[in-house]
Design a protein around this nucleic acid. Sequence first.
DNA 1: GTCATGACGGATC
DNA 2: GGATCCGCCATGA
Length: 116
Amino acid sequence: MKQAGMSGFRQGVYRIVRQIPAGKVATYGQIAFLLGSPRAARIVGAAMQAAPEGLPCHRVLYGDGSLCRGEIFGGEGCQRQLLEQEGVCFCPDGRVDLKQCLWQPEQIESGFEKKG
DNA sequence: GTCATGACGGATC
DNA sequence: GGATCCGCCATGA
């Protein structure tokens, strides 16, 4: 499988983020890990800057479960509001409960095959 | 090819 | 336990 030809990493980021189902969330580090660079979490975020409209970038959070800076997404709580509408669980601390809503990439069918 | 940057993440104080 | 610093690695000029 080959990417569109442009930077494979960014293309891979979009490809994975699109796999995130509603009601679930993923972290930058997790996405970067799936791309083969667990330390390239920043690169994932950098790719989000050019995120297309159909990309559920609001389902991508920090590794701590906290949401990104409001200004970046487009408004304070804007990201959280979208997640709540999808049924994402939030902690009283204002962070997402990754223990319940962290996306488990066990259904990815592009690039990664599950053995067993 | 090199320098500088960045929607991160972990270690440290 | 919270705030801060550095490191990481791909992207762009």
